[in-house]
């Protein structure tokens, strides 16, 4: 059996058996995550899997069994991840959320985590429907789509990718759960990004949203998906192969020295470092009822939360013991002079 550079097999990145419905898009995402983490040589003990409540949030149990996981409360994956990352900056936070969890009950936390640029991977497994409560619309369901009961969605969907961009996120991607070729390198790039890397993954709900009226069914997404790029991830240690020749590919260097290699598709002039273009392309795709996938926007030169002057922690806070940080009585007396 093959091993990664840590001497670990892929099996060691797997988790417990899934209890989701057979064929659920979320399980495909879990498999791609396992592959990406394995191939990225991420030390399992440094992984912290954090989620809210919902079908997607259950999946933190289905990968990297030996890592710590935290399946918390509905809508609070973002602030819980924020606290965990600030407490121990060595952790690789994998936040898994759903469209109900992030686009409705947790919308405030979602936006503010991105605004702070907490270094982590933030995945939304987006099926447009509340599965665990049996098929109600979520806020990412498209106007005009229907749920299983036939009920019509009257409101515009919340587009999490454009919202992520307006919230200051420097890594915004959309993918389809069934597209391993695109998703695995996307996750690898996300793991190496110096800040919040957000991936909105359309993930069909086989039980409640896989019918004709849904815009997040397997068939709909397959037929209406528009891939922006062929996506490659080049780890720091690897040489850039001829597949990514300059001119035909766009190379984006990440802060740790690794590269994202983007091979343009369909003659597109898309450039993911162009904010305005990305916003308009997202909107165009929405208007044309297509699902635009790939790396939509990237901005590499941002400071993450822990690099600002105000919050510049170097040693993980959890390692700061009393002997190291407790001030003394003399210093207290100095301060108390102001109260005398």
């Amino acid at each position: 059996m093959s091993e990664n550079s840590l001497g670990l097999t892929k099996k060691e990145y797997k988790g417990g058996p899934s209890t989701l419905c057979t064929g659920c898009g979320h399980d495909s995402i879990t498999n791609h995550l396992v592959t990406a983490l394995y191939e990225s040589n991420t030390p399992p003990h440094l992984i912290a899997k954090i989620s809210g409540i919902g079908c997607s949030s259950k999946t933190t149990n289905y990968f990297v069994d030996s890592a710590h996981g935290f399946n918390a409360i509905h809508g609070r994956m973002a602030p819980i991840s924020t606290g965990a990352k600030i407490a121990n900056k060595d952790l690789q936070i994998i936040g898994i959320s759903g469209d109900g969890d992030s686009a409705s009950i947790g919308l405030g936390g979602f936006v503010h985590l991105l605004r702070r640029n907490i270094p982590m991977v933030y995945i939304v497994e987006n099926n447009g429907v509340y599965g665990l409560t049996k098929g109600q619309f979520s806020a990412t369901a498209d106007e005009g789509s229907t749920v299983k009961s036939g009920e019509h969605c009257y409101f515009d969907s919340i587009d999490l990718c454009s919202m992520a961009m307006t919230s200051g996120c420097g890594f915004v991607a959309r993918a389809f759960s069934g597209d391993k070729k695109q998703l695995v390198p996307l996750i690898q790039a996300a793991l190496n990004f110096n800040g919040t890397a957000f991936i909105d993954i359309v993930s069909p709900c086989v039980t409640f949203a896989n019918h004709e009226g849904s815009t997040k069914s397997f068939n709909y997404v397959k037929e209406n998906k528009f891939n922006l790029q062929e996506f490659g991830f080049v780890p720091k240690s690897d040489e850039i192969s001829t597949d990514y020749e300059p001119g035909t590919s766009q190379m984006i260097k990440l802060h740790d020295g690794s590269f994202i290699a983007l091979k343009k598709m369909n003659e597109s002039e898309f450039n993911p470092t162009d904010y305005t273009l990305a916003m308009s392309e997202i909107k165009n795709a929405q208007d044309q009822k297509t699902v635009l996938t790939g790396l939509l926007y990237i901005k590499e030169d941002m400071k993450n939360f822990l690099q600002h002057e105000k919050t510049n922690t170097k040693t993980p806070l959890v390692h700061l013991e009393q002997e190291k940080i407790q001030p003394n009585q003399y210093e207290l007396n100095q301060i108390l002079q102001a109260f005398k």
Partner: peptide, 16 residues
């Protein structure tokens, strides 16, 4: 405050 306490739980869970 929903986030304020959630951040505390995240930090406490991580050992701070």
């Amino acid at each position: 405050e929903l986030s304020a306490i959630s951040m505390v739980l995240g930090a406490g869970w991580a050992g701070a």
